[in-house]
Write a protein that binds this DNA or RNA. Structure first.
Length: 887
RNA sequence: GGGCGGUUAGCUCAGCUGGGAGAGCAUCGGCCUUACAAGCCGAGGGUCACAGGUUCGAGCCCUGUACCGCCCACCA
């Protein structure tokens, strides 16, 4: 690609994006480096579900990671971004089960092994979707290191961890009440249950005393559970029921007499203050059952269908049973009343089926000791959380954490490495299948059928992907990882568990920083959902506006907050920015395409260069500082806005216009200087922008003069003290102020843009006068001024447009063109404003307490302000006087 | 019930340790000025939700109120 040519007029992003991504892949530019003596920077991607399709949250997540990865790679760090996918137990099993259903089969028709084979087939065929979509986003992952939570290495890590935790007594098997999804046939963790407010009914049932002397009314939203009632609970101090515990209750529809127990959990104010207790089907009741040693009667099977304990209701679905029970109770006079009732119903987060609390044998992790380590690490700032508003939430969740139910009754996942000896009942937990029982020597061993919660394997992701439990060079170089970037909604599902596992197993944090990005909502702040139809499809954005524009938008939106309201129009706006950059580069290319790239060297020491060059170098230096600070502090929106502001409004609007005179002029020295600085600044812009907009920057870069390899490996700019120049900043401020002033006068007076005018400046300061004089040609050309007069003093003609710039008066004679009334109104408004300010400032300066307490600098500033306001007020009066003469 | 966040220009949002209110988009006026009309130049627009307080000084700190949103725990 050494032939240099003018850039085409339009930027064709679609072609450019595929061409460069292919090129990067071929050249393996994304590959990790592990060289001695360099800093390390590593990120593991939050593995998207293998069933996933790229949504806007992924797009944001991906962009921010790629931004940091590219930045650090350009800083020269040993950098790796490890990609991969999550096997997503229930989600994936559901997808394949649906596929089977369309063939009229269930997984049971296939059997476990064949079914799992089928899932692997599905994964081979369809599992790459989201990976390819990440590539379209421009993700510079080290794709040769792509991992999958079910692949061999990671499975080994999973078994290793399970065995270690079991041996330490941190994993146990127990009977427990769990959230059961009758559709997915599995237990769900507490945080996998979503509580939706639902319109339901509250049924008030009559429970007669066992001796027939009275009755108690109990209320329930799930009347069918009464079949499993083994007690009625009342508050110990509830006088209404004193002595009832000696009598008991005759449970309707059954022939059972159940006890009345006294328990503080019961709220006297609710309903009648009597609570039916179903220990096998309600979490709170389960706790009460434990306290009072109550019998647990399970009345449903795993499908949510009533079992033999339900007597004549056996075989009914739980909801059909509810209807039947209600009708029977009513018929037999046990139904007091039914009320409409809104309450929270727990639903499976995967399939939205109503969850059934029920008891079963499950595996658990004792998380308390692990959680303590995580909390300590956060308290010691070994892990920092951004934005810091999440600390409180993190601590309170960790304080209230319950043991983690890790077993799931599905087939797709890491099968629990535990075997039971059928001869002697010995439980064996091991990383590999044992041949014989360690106790009795029998070979009749059966493995657990449950698999592990998907989050178990993802909790190991930061080190399992680096080769743990083996001692690898990758682990040594890249663990702990630098930063974890993820959405806050999985702070507890995933982030906290990675902390626990990393700290416990490697005795080291899994990452130094956690950056929790916002949730992307639609432009009205509503959650995006398919049913609402307000989903913004990232791929559509890419097709329509290009990946770079889309990435820039996401970056610009990524302030540290909780939500981002996404508006497609913004993407359109940033596409214009890409276009602007493209055209600026085109302009530069017209002048420099045949130059030696070494021309940038003139920028090395700007002291002998003309003011505009000194200024733009000073400004880009300031921008570099801003951008670096913003990147290091995860203030992504500031990164975008600094570069945007500089590129468009300083580089394009002012600098390029300013140097046109030199570029098109005859002075060879001036022309060469302009070309050199132009190329230098453009290169710096491209490099700084590259992490956000990789494609367009690479494309332009490749066409700039000289042999060039990828921009991806260029050094990210550093602060350059030689470029810092406050005098140049101030001088340019003044000149730009003068130009704007003349333009304002022209525009206000409706002078045609091509009409030539004369302008005058009253300037008492000799240095400023010299400055303006020196650049009068540029001022004239940028304002279409024919003659510019600069005088130390004088009077402003009555019929002149007039603007004050600092302590300079700029005016343009405009015979008959002045809108006298309009100008007077404007001056009146200005007068009011100045007055108001002046009163405030003078008040302050007369306040002794202010003079005593405020820092010297602030006082001086206020004094200067007073002087300036007074001058402006005087000039305002003069202007008004002049205009009145024209009335 | 507990906790957290938000309220700044018509819209979407910035605003660092308290020291003269900003951006983008939209609006209005004028321009095809040889990189860009996907553009250029210019203009208008804000009691920083409300009420108190601290302070010489508050968009920023404190207290309270209102509205919006989220999270956790849920009363069967």
């Amino acid at each position: 690609m050494s032939e240099k040519y003018d850039l085409p007029k339009a930027y064709e992003f679609a072609e450019v994006e595929t061409r460069w991504y292919d090129h990067w892949m071929e050249q393996k530019t994304f590959a990790a480096t592990m060289e001695e003596g360099r800093d390390s920077f590593s990120i593991v991607i939050p593995p998207p579900n293998v069933t996933g399709v790229l949504h806007i949250g992924h797009a944001l997540n991906c962009t921010l990671q790629d931004l940091l990865i590219r930045y650090h790679r350009m800083k020269g760090d040993n950098t790796v971004w490890i990609p991969g996918t999550d096997h997503a137990g229930i989600a994936t099993q559901n997808v394949v089960e649906r596929q089977l259903a369309s063939e009229g089969k269930t997984r049971h028709d296939l059997g476990r092994d064949k079914f799992i084979e089928r899932v692997w087939d599905w994964r081979e065929e369809k599992g790459g979707t989201i990976i390819n979509q990440l590539k379209r986003m421009g993700a510079s992952c080290d794709w040769d290191r792509e991992r999958f939570t079910m692949d061999e290495g990671l499975s080994k890590a999973v078994r290793e961890v399970f065995v270690r935790l079991f041996d330490e007594g941190l994993i146990y098997k127990g009977d427990y009440i769990v959230n059961w999804c009758p559709r997915c046939h599995t237990a769900l963790a507490d945080d996998e249950v979503e509580h939706d407010p639902t319109e339901g009914k509250l049924y008030h049932l009559r429970y007669p005393y066992a001796d027939g002397s009275g009755e108690v009314i109990v209320a329930t939203t799930r009347p069918e559970t009464m079949l499993g009632d083994t007690a009625v609970a009342v508050h110990p101090e509830d006088e209404r029921y004193t002595g009832l515990e000696k009598i008991g209750i005759r449970l309707p529809l059954t022939d059972r007499v159940i006890p009345v127990v006294l328990d503080h959990h019961v709220q006297r104010e609710f309903g009648t203050g009597a609570l039916k207790v179903t220990p096998a089907h309600d979490r709170d009741d389960y706790e009460i059952g434990l306290r009072h040693d109550l019998e647990r009667i399970k009345i449903m099977d795993d499908h949510g269908v009533m079992n033999e304990n339900a007597g004549k209701y056996k075989g009914l679905d739980r909801f059909a049973c509810r209807r039947q029970i209600v009708s029977d109770l009513k018929e037999q006079g046990f139904l007091e009343k039914i009320e409409d009732y809104q309450h929270a119903v727990g639903k499976c987060y995967r399939c939205a089926t109503v969850v059934e609390p029920t008891t079963s044998k499950q595996w658990f992790v004792s998380v308390r000791p692990l959680a303590d380590k995580a909390v300590a690490a956060v308290r010691d700032e070994r892990i920092k959380i951004y934005p810091n508003t999440w600390y409180n939430t993190f601590y309170s969740w960790m304080d209230n954490i319950r043991d983690w139910c890790i077993s799931r009754q599905i087939w797709w996942g890491h099968r629990i490495p535990a075997w039971t000896c059928e001869e002697c009942g010995k439980l064996i937990v091991a990383t590999r299948a044992p041949d014989v029982c360690s106790k009795c020597g029998s070979s009749n061993l059966t493995q657990e059928t449950d698999v592990l919660d998907t989050w178990f394997s993802s909790a190991l992701w930061p080190f399992s992907t680096l080769g743990w439990p083996d001692d690898t060079r990758e682990l040594e170089t890249f663990y702990p990882t630098s930063v974890l970037i993820t959405s806050f909604d999985i702070l507890f599902f995933w982030v906290a568990r990675m902390m626990m596992m990393g700290l416990h197993l490697l005795d080291e944090v899994p990452f130094h920083d956690v950056y929790l990005h916002a949730l992307v909502r639609d432009k009205h702040g509503k959650k995006m959902s398919k049913s609402t139809g307000n989903v913004i499809d990232p791929l559509k954005m890419i097709d329509q506006f290009g990946t770079d524009a889309f990435r820039f938008t996401l970056t610009a939106f990524a302030a540290q907050g909780r939500e981002i309201k996404m508006d497609e129009e913004r993407v359109e706006g940033y596409r214009r920015f890409i276009n602007k950059l493209w055209n600026a580069a085109r302009f530069a290319q017209m002048h420099i395409k045949d130059s030696d790239p070494a021309i940038v060297e003139v920028a090395g020491d700007p002291s002998s260069l003309a003011l505009p060059h000194q200024w733009i170098l000073s400004r880009i230096n300031a921008t570099v500082q801003e951008v670096r600070a913003a990147l290091d502090g995860y203030n992504f929106n500031d990164v975008a806005s600094s570069i945007y502001q500089f590129t468009w409004h300083e580089f394009c609007d002012w600098y390029l216009e300013w140097i046109k005179g030199d570029l098109y002029g005859d002075d060879e020295q001036a022309r060469n200087n302009a070309k050199g600085v132009l190329l230098c600044v453009l290169e710096n812009i491209l490099i700084m922008l590259h992490p956000i907009t990789p494609f367009v920057t690479e494309e332009i870069w490749s066409q700039l003069p000289g042999e060039r390899s990828t921009i991806m490996l260029e050094k990210f700019p550093k602060e350059n003290s030689q470029w810092h120049n406050e005098n140049a900043d101030q001088a340019m401020e003044l000149l730009m102020g003068v130009i704007s002033a003349i333009r304002t006068i022209r525009s206000e007076a409706d002078v045609h843009p091509t009409a030539k005018i004369q302008a005058s400046i009253l300037c008492a300061d000799a240095d400023k006068e010299a400055l303006i004089h020196k650049f009068s040609a540029a001022i004239c050309s940028m304002t279409r001024t024919e003659e510019l007069h600069i005088m130390p003093s004088g009077t402003v003609p009555d019929d002149a447009g007039h603007v004050l710039v600092e302590d300079l008066e700029v005016f343009v004679p405009l015979k008959g063109l002045i809108d006298v009334e309009g100008e007077l109104e404007k001056l009146a408004r200005e007068h009011k404003k100045i007055d108001k300010e002046l009163i405030r400032v003078i008040g302050k300066l007369r306040n002794q307490k202010f003079l005593d307490n405020a820092p010297e600098a602030v006082i001086l500033k206020e004094k200067a302000k007073q002087k300036e306001l007074e001058t402006r007020l005087a000039k305002n009066a003069e202007s008004k006087a002049r205009l009145r003469k024209l009335q």
